[in-house]
Amino acid sequence: MIRIENVSFKHRATPILSDISLDIPKGGVVALIGPNGAGKSTLLSLVARLQPLQAGVISVDGLPVDTTPSRDLAKVLAILRQDTTIASRLRVRELVGFGRFPHGRGRLTQEDDAIVDAAVAQFDLTDLSDRFIETLSGGQRQRALVAMAFAQDTDYLLLDEPLNNLDMYYARALMRSLRSVADANGKTVVIVLHDINQASAHADRIVAMKSGRIIADGTPGEILTPDMLDTVFGFRMRVETIEGKPFALHQL
């Protein structure tokens, strides 16, 4: 379980997060939604110990993120940041292989190789596996980064806008992959999404943030209502139910 208690965060004098408390039990897909600047990425980076905690407590499976050795946390929790740029000339398979680093400290066993191959295949990268990352398109590069996070094979997977640069086909494929690792392997996925309909279609729970606070938390059916979406995003949109799932027609 990820436990976030009374976390506040300031960038210089500007408050980014104000007194956030949130429990995310093990297993399932949780989507974080909200307008730009709501603090979603900051919250994710604090959970992943990428920034020091200023106030409050965060623990993952009982391990406090600020005092647990980083290499132990790396076996429990993987994060993919938004806009990760890879300036190194690494081949796709090499990059995905580094996802195994926390487990073997650089020595790849046969089991590691199998996991890496599976991650490469899962994201349709097999034909590209000997290509340098810099020669790939934005979407292919994003898939390689997601595959690297998958290869880390942690119980908790934090993804910050992973659908960026992905076309419809791969966006859907990624969401379905996340769903299946959550269902089949009991993994916990926390994902920042801008497309609330992806959240509705694939997440168990949606947490809505605005101005550094959590303003709604519930199932897709509870969050995707015209009133609630108006509160979060600041305009009314039509919500239609298709196959039992609510979809917001925010383009209209």
Partner: peptide, 8 residues
Amino acid sequence: EASIGLGI
């Protein structure tokens, strides 16, 4: 960030 994420 990638380094910390991988436990370095």
